[in-house]
């Protein structure tokens, strides 16, 4: 069984002028202003241990594809099957609660992600060490800088030991030192046999990590295969 299997996936977003028009739309499919076709007929298979780079312009559908694989948003049509626990490095500090301390937030978000108390106990020291935010760990999250909150989120995501990892341009987290550290940690994961979807605009990173690349334009996959060929096609425009 493959890690990710996607068949004829479509994802449309209906846009409304006012929210209340959604309700009649649910029954009649009328009343919207326009349809945004984020993904159109996407078929993709990712095997275990494959590191797939996803490249495309802003708005091409990369994020939508990743969100669907992460189970955050639902496909409009088509089949998606994901085998394994998905960890996503998208929106790192989402789900944190500003009045809880860093420690409480790790337990809280860990439980949202479906972990048991004991599982979190066993990784909490790694997280403390990796996030490296010192005494802030036991202060409320609202006292953090946004970089610190993202570091905490990043640490939880990587130590929760996912089988499939979804990475969306996260190396901009924190300061230079932490960027280096997170880069190393992610590199480690990239080499540990996990299946990874990696969206980036950085050619060097794609070349370094990926053994396959897909190019998305206007919601369609226009290239799937060798990294260098894909990058060349994309950069040609």
């Amino acid at each position: 069984m493959n890690a990710i299997e996607i068949k004829n996936l479509k994802k449309y977003y209906w846009l409304f002028k006012k929210d209340y028009k959604i309700i009649p739309w649910l029954f009649t499919k009328k009343g919207y202003v326009s349809i945004k076709k984020a993904l159109e007929d996407v078929t993709l298979t990712v095997g275990h241990g494959e590191v797939v780079g996803i490249i495309g312009k802003n708005g091409a559908g990369k994020s939508t594809l990743m969100k669907i694989v992460a189970g955050i948003t639902f496909p409009t049509e088509g089949q998606v099957s994901v085998n394994g626990k998905v960890g996503s490095l998208i929106n790192l500090s989402a789900g944190f609660f500003p009045d809880y301390t860093g420690r409480q937030n790790i337990y809280y978000k860990g439980k949202i992600m479906g972990m048991k108390e004991k599982q979190i106990d066993s990784i909490i020291n790694d997280i403390i060490e990796f996030a490296d935010i010192g005494q802030y760990f036991d202060l409320p999250l609202k006292t953090y800088s946004s970089g610190m909150a993202a570091r905490l989120g990043f640490s939880l995501a990587v130590f929760s030991d996912p089988d499939i990892l979804i990475v969306d341009e996260v190396f901009a987290v924190g300061d230079k030192d932490f960027q280096k550290k997170s880069f190393e940690k992610t590199s480690e994961m990239f080499k540990s046999g996990k299946s990874i979807l990696f969206a980036s605009h950085n050619d060097a990173q794609i070349k370094k990590f990926c053994n396959r690349v897909i190019v998305i334009t206007e919601g369609r996959i226009i290239f799937d295969g060798d990294v260098n060929e894909g990058l060349e096609l994309y950069n040609r425009g």
């Binding site: 998905v86 998208i90 929106n91 989402a94 789900g95 992600m113």
Partner: peptide, 9 residues
Amino acid sequence: QAIISSIKF
């Protein structure tokens, strides 16, 4: 909403 729109739940 923050949970729904960013974590599988």
